[in-house]
Simulated scan of single mutants.
Amino acid sequence: MLVINRDEVAGLLSMKACIGVMQEVLAALSAGEAVQSLRQVLPLGEGNLLGLMPGQLRQEAAAGAKIISVFPHNHGAGLPSHQGAVVLFDTATGMLKAVVDGREITAIRTAAVSAVATRLLAREDAGVLAILGTGEQAVSHLEAMLLVRNIREVRVWGRTGSKAQKFAADMSAKWNVKITAAATVREAVQDADIICTVTASTVPVLSGEWVKKGAHINAVGACRPNDRELDSALAAMSRLYVDRLESAVHEAGDYLIPLGEGVIREGHIIGELGELLHGRIEGRAHPAEITLFKGLGLAIEDLAAADYIYNQAVRLQKGIEIAW
């Protein structure tokens, strides 16, 4: 069995490679070639939880689960909010193949899925990016968006202004693009072509009245039925796509809350990214439409990433081999 730590995951799974892996697994999921169960969530009190996310990749003969803790208030203590591991098994023998750091996989694959959605749904001429949030996902989403659209300007907003300013300074030094900190969400998203919401908020931070026609939104911060980052008006005015329909109708507060309010109806979700990849549903139909991807994060995405990392580790002789 291989143990693959966080630093090795970062070295073995590039964002560019992960975007390709995510596109393939999303298509496989919608085609029935990959299967998963709904995540099981164990509340730990004070808004914290432990999640179990199992799945199977049939073509790769791999199965396993991601086990993750979510402690939203960790940011205040300088700790990551999401921590965990992906456990990978061989379905031909039942052998435990690998334990892979889950935090780095989450950081990379979440943004990679948003990149797939952006590639499919954002306007080709999209050039202004707004990022709401300043944590790990803000960093990874910036990299991912730069890979799929010709971004010329980035604005970032965070609840703590100093963190937004530091993000802008650090990322400006890393990427050849103009990045500025915005004082308000409205200022950040004004005239933005792509908006990524990657906050830990449980209540709306983004209002539909601030979003310009033709924008594309990746909403990936809220992952529980009672949590959301978007107001109901924005959900109603958007063409809504998801990573997995079964997950969205059970877990996505950005869909379930406006549905409960009667602002939208069942059927408001156009479909899954995998269906879009197969050409079974229509994507953006008009340049002025607002498209919205609601991502929850799927077990199958973690397994596909872990399987790719495992194969790379074997090829490059990385990781720590442990007798099991």
Rank of each mutant, 00 (worst) to 15 (best):
I4Q: 00
N5I: 00
A10Y: 09
M15D: 08
M15C: 08
I19C: 07
G20P: 14
Q23T: 12
S30G: 15
S30C: 11
G32S: 10
E33W: 05
Q36G: 04
S37C: 11
S37P: 01
Q40P: 00
V41A: 11
L42K: 07
L44S: 01
L49S: 14
L50G: 13
G51K: 12
P54Q: 12
R58T: 11
R58Q: 13
F71E: 06
H75Q: 14
G76W: 07
L79E: 14
Q83T: 14
G84S: 09
G84M: 09
A85V: 15
V86P: 14
D90T: 10
D90H: 08
T91H: 03
A92K: 14
A92F: 00
D101L: 02
E104C: 09
E104L: 05
I105H: 04
T110A: 07
A111Y: 11
A115T: 15
L120D: 00
E124P: 13
D125W: 01
V128N: 09
A130G: 13
I131E: 02
I131K: 02
I131F: 02
G133A: 03
T134V: 15
E136G: 01
S140H: 15
H141Q: 12
L142K: 05
L147Y: 08
R149K: 13
V156Y: 09
S162H: 05
A168D: 02
M171W: 03
M171L: 01
M171H: 03
S172K: 05
W175T: 00
V177K: 14
K178I: 01
A181E: 11
A182S: 13
T184W: 09
T184E: 07
V185Q: 05
V185G: 04
E187H: 07
V189L: 14
D191G: 04
D193L: 08
D193M: 06
I194C: 06
T202I: 14
V203W: 08
V203Y: 10
L206H: 07
W210V: 11
H216G: 03
N218H: 12
V220L: 12
G221F: 07
R224W: 06
N226D: 15
N226R: 14
D231I: 01
D231K: 02
S232L: 02
A235Q: 02
A235G: 09
M237A: 10
S238W: 08
S247I: 00
A248R: 10
V249L: 13
G253S: 10
Y255A: 09
I257E: 10
E266R: 15
G267M: 06
G267C: 01
H268L: 04
H268Q: 05
E272S: 03
E275I: 00
E275H: 00
L276V: 05
G279K: 07
R280C: 01
I281W: 01
R284D: 02
A285K: 12
E289Q: 11
L292M: 10
F293P: 09
F293E: 06
K294Y: 05
I300C: 02
E301N: 07
D302F: 05
A304T: 12
A306R: 10
D307R: 11
I309W: 08
I309R: 08
I309E: 09
I309V: 15
Y310L: 15
Y310M: 10
N311A: 04
R315W: 03
K318V: 00
I322T: 03
A323T: 12
